[in-house]
Amino acid sequence: MKIVVIGGTGLIGSKLVAKLREHGHEAVAASPNTGVNTLTGEGLAEVLRGAQVVVDVSNSPSFEPAAVLAFFETSTRNLLAAEAEAGVGHHVAVSIVGTERLPDNGYFRAKIAQEQLIEKSGIPFSLVHATQFFEFTKGIADEATREDGCAHIAPVQFQPMAGDDVAAAVGRTAVGAPVNGRIEIAGPDRYRMDEFFRQALAGMGDTREVVTDPHARYFGSELEELSLVPLGEAALGEIHYRDWAAR
């Protein structure tokens, strides 16, 4: 099966391409580095020729709200148009658990816009909603660090997962039948977010204090207890944070 992975040279994309190839699929990594640009349309027709499935794990180079919205709307429109022309039968996109629960978060709004375009495209699709990745732990802590030098984290539920587990779940979805809806995936363990970061930073040798702050903002949004975790059934990863960190 020919599967084109948009964003195939990034964190999740590179893992996904490797896993698909291990299982005998023709997995093609598509990104500006390989001559495929979804913003301009460059290389799309060529790379999609003969593809049965497209997986979009691309990301915006800027997280500024207007820029990220423009990225996901433009790239998704171009990609879906090229897929329709090429006769692609399954579009898979990775999104985030809780997008609809944080409407004041510019990045989440952009992901919602992307999903709406996919849902209306007429192309069979699957949306994989993932929780935060272990690989982003330091970046989240950096964003949460205030003028006092402390990371201010809300005491809400948090269920992050390993990038390898994300790639495995997306791969299973890509080779399966389109669900024409969403699948939620999360890590095997649920934590209190402030406690997770207190332990994770200590394990990294990071001496920053983690302040428990119910009003701490997560990339601009104040969180409620269940903002970032699945509300119903979710497929759980197998890699525990302690094992991932030890590696």
Rank of each mutant, 00 (worst) to 15 (best):
N33L: 15
L102Y: 00
A67C: 08
D148Y: 02
L79D: 03
N33C: 13
A86R: 06
A70L: 06
H129S: 14
H91I: 12
D148F: 03
K138L: 15
G98V: 07
S58W: 00
H91K: 05
G50L: 13
P124C: 14
L69P: 00
V92C: 01
H129G: 12
V57I: 12
G35I: 09
S60P: 09
V166R: 00
L48I: 15
V92Y: 00
L69G: 14
L44V: 04
F108A: 09
A51P: 04
F134A: 00
V170F: 00
T99N: 04
A144S: 12
R77P: 02
P155T: 09
A93H: 02
A110T: 12
E46V: 15
F108H: 02
A110Y: 11
D165F: 00
G106Y: 05
S95G: 10
D164C: 03
A70T: 08
N59G: 09
A82T: 10
E83K: 13
Q52I: 14
E42H: 06
V156M: 04
T34V: 11
F108I: 09
A144K: 01
V88A: 12
N59V: 14
A169H: 02
D164M: 04
V55W: 01
T74N: 00
G43Q: 11
Y107D: 01
H90S: 11
E100C: 09
R101C: 09
T99Y: 06
E147M: 15
K138C: 10
R109M: 10
T76P: 05
D148K: 08
E100H: 07
L39P: 04
A169F: 05
V36H: 05
E85R: 14
I118Y: 02
L39E: 03
E85Y: 10
D165C: 02
G41L: 07
A93E: 01
F108E: 00
F63G: 04
V88M: 11
F125Q: 15
A86I: 15
S75G: 14
S95K: 03
V94F: 07
S58H: 03
A168M: 04
V53M: 10
G139C: 13
P160R: 08
M161R: 08
G163I: 12
R77F: 15
K111G: 02
V57T: 12
P103F: 11
R77S: 13
C150L: 11
G89T: 14
V57L: 08
L127Y: 06
D142N: 11
G87E: 03
N78T: 11
P155C: 13
A167T: 01
V68Q: 07
P155G: 09
Q157F: 13
A130I: 13
G122A: 10
S58M: 02
G89S: 13
N33H: 12
N78L: 13
L80P: 04
R101E: 10
T137N: 00
A110E: 02
S58Q: 02
E83G: 15
G43K: 05
Q116I: 13
E42Q: 12
V166C: 03
E64R: 09
N59T: 07
P103T: 14
G50V: 15
I140A: 07
